[in-house]
Design a binder for these strands. Structure first.
Length: 85
DNA sequence: TAGTTGACCGGAA
DNA sequence: ATTCCGGCCAACT
């Protein structure tokens, strides 16, 4: 468990309902401004419900992918929480 | 140990 | 505006 990893989890875990962060923002918050790719890698490896990985989206305002085999479900969850588009 | 891949980003065509 | 290309980090083979 690297500090980068635990930091990322901590940040994602702290995302409030109705709020969303981009992978880059999370990477920056974790202290690795250019490790936004690694963030996604960790998310896909992590299946813990304590970590709302569905609150993390791309900088292009695109929802991105999601585990459990359903990027659409992720978009649906976000929409239901109040995130538009 | 080295090479390839991916839930990405930003700039260029 | 959309599509292509290179670059970066961690994990996997």
């Amino acid at each position: 468990m690297t500090e980068f990893q635990q930091k990322v989890y901590e940040v994602v875990r702290g995302i409030k309902k109705g709020s969303v962060m981009t992978y880059k923002e999370v990477a920056i918050a974790a202290g690795h401004p250019n490790a936004f790719r690694a963030v996604g890698s960790l998310m896909k490896q992590n299946y813990d419900r304590e970590i709302p990985c569905h609150r993390v989206i791309r900088s292009d305002d695109k929802v991105g992918e999601y585990n459990r085999g359903g990027s659409e479900r992720k978009a649906e969850m976000l929409r239901e929480e109040g995130f538009r588009r």
